[in-house]
Nucleic acid binder design. Structure first.
Lengths: 209, 209
DNA sequence: GTGAAACTTATACAAGTGTCTAAATTTAAT
DNA sequence: ATTAAATTTAGACACTTGTATAAGTTTCAC
């Protein structure tokens, strides 16, 4: 991304970012990502190509920004709502479940023109996986497992995303409750946990702070 | 792929396929995939662009063919060597482990210029995942689990590939034996299996046809 | 060794990509 | 309101991509 999202954007920058991301979503709902080009995005947005390249490296960069917006919308990074030791896995699963549900209109349209495991939707699930990977790494970092922590974290991320892809991209309607059961079976954490950082036998009960 | 791999290639076609794939591997070991373009591939191969496009759709198609060659080399699809009910998971894990090891020179060079989870190496792991997905779908199709078969298959594929990526792309040296232990922990199949197609309680002991 | 099929090649083309310039405009702080 | 800094913009540029044509060459089965 050429534009620095960390600084406060000017009004003009906000308009521009909004216009491009809005156009991107509209186009993604209409045709395959492969068939969308930068000229088209610029025409629909009423901005010249030069402006596009002031903000984004390329069209891949733009959709990534779209994913960022969707994730922000559902408060993916909101740490404040976390009780000390809720099962982070379920909390993040639920947030992502909500994200997929909130955007089911858009996603369903996208699915009509793009393979569920094509470049576009891959970049989406990849974005989300990377996001929770950061969180999980922080959270599990202190714990000990029968396998290396990194593997454990990867396993959690892959499994969560695999399940969400199955439900929402391969369109296998599944309630949250049912999904939680699947998760519990797929990630048999009691088997894996050896010692949380403090001293208690199970991380999700007493290991706070 | 424009060229039909199922028919027997002429001598000329063999030469051409060899030249392009050979060049591809050489270039991949030298520089980032993003920096390689079709002209360059053609110059190094001493074939005109037109010939390249007789065989491949684009450079992504070419690397995919390279993955195909590597996988073929290690006999990934060889069904003959399978005892009735060996644990397919371990067998295929081992084959892929061998594949990574056989090509560790190439892969290490590639890793110097390409992110372990960038476009290029993603296309590699993706290719392998899809390959074992087909096998596992056949094999697990008959069985019943506490979760939908599709999920079970996905879980197996993702976990196997995740582990291999960890060992060979994130470069965490691990013996086969150790990896088998990790696998057993990550995929706790006794927990999941309910009923194999026939009647026995465990699929890997007596369920053979 | 001949001939039909398969493959190669030179060349041209339309379209898209990403960068760069210098002039015009907007912005936010005074 | 003024102004210096930051952005936007039109236009041009070099480069890559993928397709298409039609003339040449190689291949393999007979």
């Amino acid at each position: 991304m050429k534009y620095d999202l960390s600084k406060k954007p000017t009004r003009g920058a906000q308009r521009t970012l909004y216009a491009f991301s809005h156009t991107a979503m509209a186009l993604l709902a209409q045709k395959p990502f492969e068939d969308i080009n930068v000229n088209e995005i610029c025409n629909q947005s009423n901005f010249p190509r030069a402006t596009f390249y002031n903000y984004f490296d390329d069209k891949y960069d733009l959709v990534n920004y779209v994913w960022y917006l969707l994730a922000k919308d559902v408060g993916i990074d909101d740490v404040s709502a976390l009780a000390k030791n809720d099962d982070l896995l379920l909390i993040y699963f639920d947030r992502l479940y909500d994200l997929f549900e909130h955007n089911s209109r858009l996603l369903d349209s996208i699915l009509k023109h793009n393979e569920a495991n094509g470049t576009l939707l891959n970049s989406f699930t990849r974005y989300l996986r990377d996001t929770i990977h950061r969180v999980f790494t922080d959270h599990f970092g202190h714990m000990k497992f029968r396998i290396p922590v990194e593997l454990m974290v990867d396993q959690c991320c892959y499994t969560v995303m695999m399940l969400l892809e199955w439900i929402f991209l391969k369109q296998q309607p599944t309630t949250k409750a049912q999904a939680h059961q699947y998760l519990a079976i797929l990630i048999s954490d009691p088997d894996m946990v050896v010692v949380p950082s403090a001293a208690s036998p199970r991380p999700d009960q007493t290991a706070g702070k």
